[in-house]
Amino acid sequence: MGLLSKKDSKLILDPLADNNPITIQVLGICSALAITAQLKPSIVMAISVIFVLGVGNVIISLMRNIIPSKIRIIVQLIVVATLVIIVDQVLKAFAYELSKELSVFIGLIITNCIIMGRFEAFALGNGPWKSFLDGVGNALGYGIILIIVGFFRELLGSGTLFGFKVLGDPVEKTFLYSIGYENNGFMVLPPMALIVVGIIIWVQRSRNRALIEEN
């Protein structure tokens, strides 16, 4: 990475694995379980969060010296809400079909704890460029988990990926279904997202023992 200094690239790369917002900090679990029943909404959600968190971090960082500390949480909330409304309106005007598919999910970005968490913990104390990298990095870390969970839930729950029947047709009994394979309906339900996230956490910590908390 010639473009970024070592410190800067750490800002992007760290949240992808060893400081992942979902698996290490356990933030943003609520949306991770709500929207990951299928792969496509997971990906669009990831992209939207990258936009909102990247831009939001820059805005907060630019305003960090003039925000009154007593109302800083409210100010942060207004920034997120504004960005989310802009995303929502732009989608409605220019990508109507997509916005219909995502209706509630876009609004859910406001409640994503990762965003407020990064504003409060990073953007308030760092410059705009660093904040931008941090925002994008954390959103990517969040997005990766979303996509992994969405992949397994759609594949095992519905036997499809992006709506394509990759495991054969369950009604016609082709391919895997012809030898007795069945879809696992549990995977479509929200609690299974937690179990998949749990498995990811387990795998991650068993590969990197430094991540295991003591006590």
Binding site: I66, K70, I71
Partner: peptide
């Protein structure tokens, strides 16, 4: 930025800007 008057003015300006933008 700790003064109450500043906080109130900041809030008012912020609401006006965001409100008219949206």
């Amino acid at each position: 930025t700790e003064k109450n008057s500043y906080t109130v003015v900041f809030a008012i300006i912020m609401v006006l800007v965001v409100g008219s933008l949206l």
